[in-house]
Amino acid sequence: MSAQNQIVLVTGAGNGIGRSVAVAYARDGATVILVDKNAEELEGTAEMIVAEGLLQPISRVLDLSEPASIEACFEELARSVGRLDVLINNAGFGIWKSVYELTIEEWDRVIHTNLRGTFVCAREAARMMKQSGNGGAIVNISSTRAIMSEPNSEAYAASKGGILSLTHALAVSLGPDRICVNAISPGWIETGDYDKLRPDDHLQHPAQRVGKPDDIARACLYLTDPRNDFVTGANIVIDGGMTRKMIYLE
């Protein structure tokens, strides 16, 4: 796998999975465009990349709940950068609150950021990819919460389920333009202090460990490698096997 000479945009690149994905692409030779609504965290990711002597990233502060801002950002990138090969739609958040107390405003904020933001970014990225004539690849980060749930996760689950449907619809629509669109559904990916996890946290997984952001980054590199253009419309579940494990109360 190689992202050499690719131009890659990663949303939610300020921390967690997005940061690891951005660094992985930079290490693989890509020019990375970092997008996040938190300017300080965005700067932290850029500093990590520069500290390794990698290609200087491009940073853009952007709130994905604002469609007009997304459109303006991509229009500016089309002028300043000129092309885009890969989009990693990673940004998103959840509100964990009783269904009886979740407000419409809170519901809309999650859906507008996670689902609508993913669509608008994909649409604008696809326009740049089509314009270049070289095709491209889009990876949408969903979640295992799209296919199974914990209590009080309605808005998050709905947004991530929508991303799965959006993914296969985009794959069909954008196929003639040689744009592959796939999804990744992470399970438990620990973005904090991995060493503080309990043995039981690891052992409950069939893979015998909790996931790490690099597990998702490697899958992104696979899905966006131009040699893997026969993979489109797929959803790769990366959860250590937890969604395949039957659990009974003792």
Rank of each mutant, 00 (worst) to 15 (best):
P199I: 02
A234V: 14
R19E: 15
L115E: 08
R27T: 09
S159A: 15
K212T: 14
W188R: 12
S142M: 00
D201N: 12
A234T: 15
A13V: 11
M129I: 06
P226K: 04
A126Q: 09
A122K: 09
P213G: 08
G241M: 06
S159G: 13
W96N: 12
P206G: 00
S142D: 07
P151A: 03
L221K: 04
C73K: 10
S149C: 09
I58M: 06
A171G: 10
I111W: 03
G29P: 07
L64P: 01
A146E: 06
G187H: 11
A22G: 03
G192Q: 09
M1S: 13
N89A: 14
A171W: 03
N140R: 04
Y248A: 12
M246K: 14
R145C: 01
G192V: 05
G53Q: 14
V231D: 04
F93N: 15
V210N: 04
L249R: 11
K196G: 00
L115S: 04
A68K: 13
Q131H: 10
A183F: 06
V139T: 05
G175Y: 07
L62H: 07
G44L: 07
A155T: 07
G136R: 01
I141L: 15
R116H: 12
I33N: 08
V61H: 02
G135R: 13
D177C: 10
I104M: 12
T243M: 12
S20W: 00
G18C: 03
T103R: 04
H168T: 14
Y248N: 08
D201F: 01
A155K: 01
D28M: 01
G135Q: 05
R109F: 00
F93K: 15
I88K: 06
W188G: 09
L84K: 15
C73R: 08
I247L: 09
A72T: 12
R244W: 00
I70P: 05
L84E: 06
K97D: 04
H202T: 08
I184C: 06
D215Q: 10
R178C: 12
A122H: 11
N182H: 06
R60C: 03
V172F: 01
S185I: 05
Q4Y: 09
Y194W: 05
V172G: 01
P186A: 03
G12I: 10
K196L: 13
G135N: 13
A234Y: 11
I184K: 05
D177Q: 12
Y222G: 00
G233P: 08
Y222N: 08
A3D: 03
M1C: 10
D63W: 02
L221N: 05
F230W: 07
A183T: 02
S98E: 09
N90A: 07
M48H: 03
M148V: 13
S20M: 02
W96R: 15
R145N: 14
G175P: 00
K130N: 09
E250F: 01
N182C: 02
G187S: 05
Q204M: 12
S149E: 07
G161F: 02
L223V: 08
W96H: 14
A219T: 15
G135F: 10
F230M: 15
P67C: 01
P186F: 06
R244E: 10
L115P: 02
C180Y: 03
L102Q: 14
G16H: 00
I95P: 00
D177L: 10
T45S: 09
G211P: 08
A68R: 13
E124P: 10
R27L: 10
S173G: 08
D36Y: 15
I236V: 12
D28Q: 04
T191A: 11
